[in-house]
Computed example of a mutant assay.
Amino acid sequence: MLNDIYALSYISIALEEFDEPKLKALAQHAIQKNKRLDISGYLCFMHNMFFQYLEGSKTEVVDLMNEIEMDIRHQVINLIHFGSIKERKFLGWSMRYLDDGELSSIHLEDMLNWIFTSMQTEDIPLALLKEKVHIMVDQIKTLRGNKTIN
């Protein structure tokens, strides 16, 4: 039986410049907010684009996503609702910012590039996008034993 954990992911294009200090400040803000909302997940930034995966109660995740979509610093261009999931993938992570080095260390920069490209078109079947995102989520989950940011 599925519990009340809900997951979604999105990509967006930055509408302003994000350097490393600005990204870390954004991540710290998200960590605090996600802790308060009991939401877990991660955020990646590459090629002026964000990819984020969120999980938690449906109400909290959907409400947070609505806020994210209103943020004028970026434009959400695709959103995938995974719906109810069996369990959290990132229990104990309020939010994790993954930089290029971490993505390279687990060999996911090519997959993230594919996801960025694919989520910008309607040519790729949603089921295939979901499968690729799930593969990436499972790979990133392996980082849990490494340095975590909570």
Rank of each mutant, 00 (worst) to 15 (best):
W93E: 15
S94M: 03
S94R: 07
M95I: 11
R96S: 15
Y97P: 12
Y97Q: 11
L98I: 14
L98A: 11
D99G: 04
D100R: 15
D100C: 10
D100K: 12
G101P: 01
G101C: 08
E102D: 12
E102N: 14
L103K: 06
L103Y: 01
L103T: 08
S105M: 13
S105A: 13
I106K: 04
I106Q: 01
I106L: 06
H107D: 12
H107Y: 11
E109Y: 08
E109K: 02
E109D: 15
E109W: 04
D110E: 11
M111F: 01
L112V: 11
N113W: 03
N113H: 10
W114R: 06
T117G: 03
T117A: 03
T117I: 07
T117K: 08
T117W: 05
M119E: 01
M119C: 11
Q120P: 00
Q120E: 11
Q120H: 07
T121F: 04
T121D: 02
E122H: 07
D123F: 14
D123Q: 03
I124G: 01
P125V: 09
A127K: 05
A127W: 13
A127S: 10
L128I: 09
L128K: 13
L129Y: 02
L129W: 01
K130L: 09
E131M: 12
K132V: 05
K132E: 07
K132T: 02
V133N: 05
H134A: 05
H134E: 14
